[in-house]
């Protein structure tokens, strides 16, 4: 069935359609199909995003009419010590979490790629956490981190004769404790992607290198890593966005005192959530969202620029 079968109504439109070249027709069809997702994204994603920009300039509290207050919300944010603590926490998740998770997942993928025995089973084990609900995992880890007598990790530490650690009840240890679980949860996905990237490198390169007598380290350094760059770029961006938007683990692991003792684990997303849905300061929460959006945008741009292919 050709498209013209449908436009049987008027001969005028038929003639117009027939006059178009095949390429133009293809473009028209492409746009026709694209229109649905574009419309969807426009209504569901972009419109609320623009709305958030507007809200950030108001004092909307859900109950009363929104009044335009200029940049007051942003001024309040810059003067709010909690915002800066949350800002530091968010960057701690990003700057420590991303490199560690990328490094670990690469090392695992690199060696897993060489393992033939039980390869599929091991890969599945690494991938399993990625399939599990973050909230459920967070609660399991929360139990692991409990003080004696129920915490498994503290039980182990005690068996070795060391002093029990407070973990989630400490302002210093809580953030790293949560970061460990976040890294662990994302590892499976990153390993799978790295494995796919490693498999995509043609074996002829390696054969040639070996014929030339290059060592393993040189091969890794000169062939594997450069050819893996597109994969690495993707994973760095993906993982950075994940750490910047961390929420589930933090919220569920410290739900008694959301954001950890004295806000030691609170990330920006949790602050936005509490500002909006606990204090109902929608305007202020929107301003925080705009900041998060800007951070995400800038960091993604910087990463793409640094890791661009020359």
């Amino acid at each position: 069935m050709t498209p013209s079968d449908h436009s049987g109504g008027g001969t005028g439109s038929l003639r117009l359609w027939d006059r178009l070249s095949v390429t133009t027709k293809q473009i028209v069809w492409a746009w026709l199909f694209l229109a649905v997702p574009i419309l969807f994204f426009g209504v569901v994603r972009f419109y609320p995003t623009l709305q958030a920009f507007w809200l950030s300039l108001t004092d909307w509290d859900l109950l009363n009419e929104a009044n335009f207050i200029g940049l007051d919300n942003y001024r309040k944010m810059l003067a709010d010590p909690l915002f800066w603590q949350v800002f530091r926490n968010t960057f701690a998740y990003l700057l420590i979490g991303t490199p560690i998770s990328i490094a670990i997942s690469f090392v695992i993928a690199y060696y897993l790629d060489r393992v033939r025995f039980l390869h599929g089973a091991i890969r599945a084990l690494y991938f399993l956490p990625f399939l599990t609900t973050a909230a459920a995992m967070a609660w399991v880890w929360r139990l692991f981190y409990q003080p004696p007598p129920i915490g498994i990790i503290n039980g182990f530490i005690g068996m070795l004769g060391f002093e029990a650690q407070p973990f989630l009840r400490s302002t210093e240890q809580a953030l790293p404790a949560i970061m460990v679980t976040a890294i662990w949860a994302g590892l499976g996905f990153q390993i799978i992607i790295f494995l796919a990237g490693l498999r995509a490198i043609p074996t002829t390169y390696y054969e040639a290198a070996r014929v030339d007598g290059l060592g393993e380290f040189t091969i890794l350094h000169r062939i594997t890593l450069p050819l893996l760059k597109p994969t690495t770029v993707f994973l760095v961006v993906f993982s950075s966005i994940g750490f910047l938007r961390i929420f589930d683990q933090v919220y569920n692991m410290t739900s008694n005192d959301p954001g950890g003792p004295l806000n030691s684990t609170k990330p920006l997303v949790l602050m936005i959530y509490q500002t909006a849905f606990s204090s109902y300061q929608m305007g202020y929460a929107a301003a925080q969202t705009v900041v998060l959006f800007t951070i995400l945008l800038v960091i993604t741009m910087i990463q793409l620029w640094i890791l661009r292919s020359r």
């Binding site: 003080p147 004696p148 007598p149 005690g158 002093e163 029990a164 005192d257």
Partner: peptide
């Protein structure tokens, strides 16, 4: 308390939240 000085049974459960 256990030998390491860890509380294993509380006289009173405390929960400020």
């Amino acid at each position: 308390h256990d030998n390491g000085g860890n509380l294993v049974q509380a006289g009173i459960a405390l929960d400020i939240a």
